[in-house]
Every structure is written in structure tokens, then in C-alpha cells.
Design a protein around this nucleic acid. Structure first.
Lengths: 234, 234
DNA sequence: TCTTCACATTAGGTTAGTCTAATCTAGTTA
DNA sequence: TAACTAGATTAGACTAACCTAATGTGAAGA
């Protein structure tokens, strides 16, 4: 069925690669990626996204429902996962072999992921012993394009004692979103579940690098979707 | 004198970086780089070069004498040497740390040199112990922009027993150039000086990877400008 | 001196990717 | 049901980098 057509991978432009990655992340929890969210993530104006969306859906990398948003096709998803593999292997290689630290590594990988060959990525992966997780604990897709789907738990249901990464905030309500941001609760932060009061009570967490604690009521905790961070491995 | 103006390095485009590198190589033996030579080296059409030359001389990176050619300004030379440092450190890192071999390494470095940060280059240089030569024996410019000038000898004067890299062919005469190409004597090839007949006689050389020998008369040997290749260091 | 021709340049067009300003649409609110 | 509005889209313009076709130019040979 899927034969003989994409023999020549048309080699996407760096810009296209960035759009696919953004759409992957934005639509990972089901549903559509909205034009304005893509624009915000890539720091471009919304009309630029509309233009690119048109091109990408003509090439069959995404599915576009006007005024709703976009989703990746199987082909687009494959391309996105390839970029994510590159990014995460680069981050890991740079931290482990060239003493980069957490902060510096992202920007560097962001540029490099468009320039390296598949061969270089695989050589790095080999040198690192075919790693499964990047320095942030995110799973690295395989070269074949499989990724360990991190199933998310809401903070309200997370087991006490576990370490979590906040991945998704399940609301569009501005006041709530602003409150979360003020509390430092934005996607990507790491936290530890310290305790939970009984009878649907609040959950107490500690932010991980800083150690600051927060008490989150059940209503809000239900909106914070987290991934369990696998134990440290170096 | 040279203060406070280039505080913000305007960050050149990859294309501009390629042009500067090409001009550096083409004008390294004094004189001007010709439009058509630049076009040939970069595999673009001559009018594209004319256009870029206009932009680059407006930005002060090159000096353009219409119908003669171009030369780098001090600023352009600095930018070119920065790219050459990046390229050569990348080549060395890839061969030494990721088991690349001679052939594969060039294309990879060619893409990466535009994407890596200065910081990554310096980390690689540190990891390699601040190396002085790349895998082809070419000197690596310092971060400050100094380069060991490889002074050239003509093949007619090179000492018997030395290993040389052919760097420049000192003629524009088409039949001679064609003959050199047929003999495999193009810039970049490595050769060993086997013997020389007395009384302005011919020089016998061996091409280095293949071992094929060539006998070159004095008239032609005078046109072949070579660099002595430093002894192997790994 | 004049012609010729290789080479350089100008003219004009294309594609990718961005922008601002103007317009459209769908879902909510009165 | 009508009006409003947030968000999406279209219109039109710009830059970088390339192209082909047409035109200039200067140095070398008739």
C-alpha cells in the first residue's frame, strides 16, 4: 500500500520541519492545533501560519479544517517524529559528551536538528548506547518512528511521592492560565508530589529545581496533566 | 578606530558565508577571485554571483573591481576564517570522535558549519586539545582569526621525499589545464615526490591514495604550486 | 586599428518565507 | 434573532537567493 511513492523523500525545508514539530506538540493530546497557537509557538504572525498550512496540506503532510485547525497525516507525523528524535539525541549528546547543561542545550539542538544528517544522528545514538530518554526525561523516538506514548495523569490523581513533568494545561480560561503561570506551573516544569489531603482535598507539590512548594486545590489539579518522570539514568 | 560599530555581528546568512569562504580560497594566492570561478566553486550561475557581489561590497565584506574580480576586506577575511575554523574543527571532531572517514566528513561539516554556535566549536576544540591541523593536514585558524600561512613551493622545486598537497595550478591555459585534469592533478590531491632528473629534468611523483605515478616535465612542474603536508598526527 | 569572444553584468522572473492591513466566520452573548 | 468578537484567512508587499536571456566590455589576435 505505502510503497514506491516516497522513495525520494522531498527533503523538507527547516521552516517546514519547525511547523511539523510544533503541530505535533500542539495536537499530541488529541484534537487540532490552532493557527494562533502554532503562530505563538513559532513566534510568527498568524497569516504566516495560514500560508504555510496551505502549502503543507497541499503536500499531504497535514489535514486542514478551515477555522478549526490542523492535524498531522501519517506522513507528517513520521517527519515530525524524525525531527524530535534528532532534537533529543542532539540534546543528550551535547550534555553527555560536551558538557552542555540543561539550558544551553535546547537552542543549540534547535539549530542543529535541521543540519545534521541521519547518519550523524545514528552515530551519536550508537556512541550513547541507543538511549531511550533525553536529558529532560522525554522519550526518544526510534529511527523507525515509534515513540513511547507518555500517558498523562492529572495532578489530582498522581501518586504521592512521584516525580512529574507538567505537560499540558487542560483549559483555555485566561484567568486560570494566568494564575498557573504566576505559580510557575507551565508545561515543562518538574515537580514532586509531596502530599494530598483526603476527601478531594488539595495536593501539595514541590517545584523541582527550586524546591518551592505549592498547594493546588482539586479543581485546578484536575487541569494539570503530567507525565511521570522515569528515574534518573546517566 | 575599529570600535563600537560591529558590536552586533550582523549574523551572515549561510549563503553569504559560503561566498566568503569561496572567495577566500580563490584569492588566497594573491590577486582577485573571478566571478566565474566563484560561480563554478559554488555551483551557481554567474549572474547570481554578480548579484551577491554587489550586496557583499555594499556591506563592506569585499572589494569589487568591475570586470576584474573581488577581494576580501579585513572584515570579510575575518568572517571567512571563522567559517574555515568551524569547518576544520568539525571535520576533525567527526573523524576522531564519531568515526567518520575522509570522504563522508566534508559534506557533513559543510552543512554543520552554518548551524553550530561558536560555543559548540570551542567545546569541540577543547575536547580535541586545541588542535592545529584538520584531518587533511590543513591548518586550523585560531579563534582570534590567525592562520598559519602555508607557503607554497612549485613541484619543480619541491624536495625529493616530501609529501605534498597540490593547492594551486598557475595557469589559465585551457589545454594545459585539461592535461592536468586528465593526469588527476587537480587542487587538493596528495602526492609524494619520488625523484627528479638532473639538469632541469622531469620530476616523478606518486599520487597518494592510489600510488599511481606521473612524470612531470619542468615547464609544467613550475605551474603546480604545492603545500608540504605535515607529518601524520592522530 | 578593428574585430572577436570570453567573461561580466543588467533585466526581469521565480520560490520560500515572512510581514501588515483588511476582511471573513463561527460561536457566544444580549 | 441580532450583534459582537476572537480568531482565521485573504490581499498585497518585501527580502534573500536563485534562474535564463539579453547586453556590455576589454584584452588578444587579424
Amino acid at each position: 500500500m505505502h510503497a514506491l511513492r516516497d522513495v525520494t523523500p522531498p527533503s523538507l525545508t527547516p521552516s517546514v520541519e519547525d511547523y511539523l514539530k510544533a503541530i505535533y506538540h500542539l495536537s499530541s493530546q488529541g484534537g487540532f492545533a490552532a493557527t494562533s497557537d502554532i503562530a505563538a509557538m513559532l513566534e510568527v504572525a498568524p497569516p504566516s501560519v495560514s500560508g504555510m498550512v496551505k502549502r503543507l496540506s497541499e503536500t499531504g503532510l497535514i489535514e486542514h479544517v478551515p477555522y478549526r485547525g490542523v492535524q498531522l497525516t501519517a506522513q507528517g507525523r513520521r517527519a515530525a517524529l524524525r525531527m524530535i528524535r534528532r532534537h533529543r539525541i542532539l540534546e543528550l549528546y551535547l550534555t553527555q559528551r560536551l558538557n552542555y547543561d540543561w539550558d544551553g542545550v535546547h537552542a543549540e539542538a534547535e539549530r542543529l536538528e535541521h543540519a545534521v544528517s541521519d547518519e550523524l544522528i545514528e552515530r551519536m545514538a550508537t556512541a550513547l548506547g541507543q538511549p531511550l530518554y533525553d536529558p529532560h526525561g522525554d522519550p526518544i523516538p526510534t529511527a523507525a518512528g515509534d515513540i513511547e506514548e507518555a500517558e498523562l495523569v492529572s495532578l489530582a490523581d498522581a501518586r504521592v511521592g512521584t516525580k512529574l513533568e507538567l505537560r499540558q494545561v487542560g483549559t483555555q480560561d485566561a484567568p486560570r492560565l494566568r494564575y498557573f503561570a504566576e505559580q510557575g506551573l507551565t508545561p515543562g516544569v518538574l515537580l514532586q508530589v509531596n502530599e494530598r489531603q483526603p476527601f478531594n482535598g488539595p495536593t501539595t507539590i514541590a517545584l523541582v529545581p527550586s524546591g518551592d512548594t505549592r498547594v493546588v486545590g482539586r479543581e485546578l489539579a484536575l487541569l494539570l496533566w503530567c507525565r511521570e518522570v522515569p528515574v534518573e539514568r546517566r
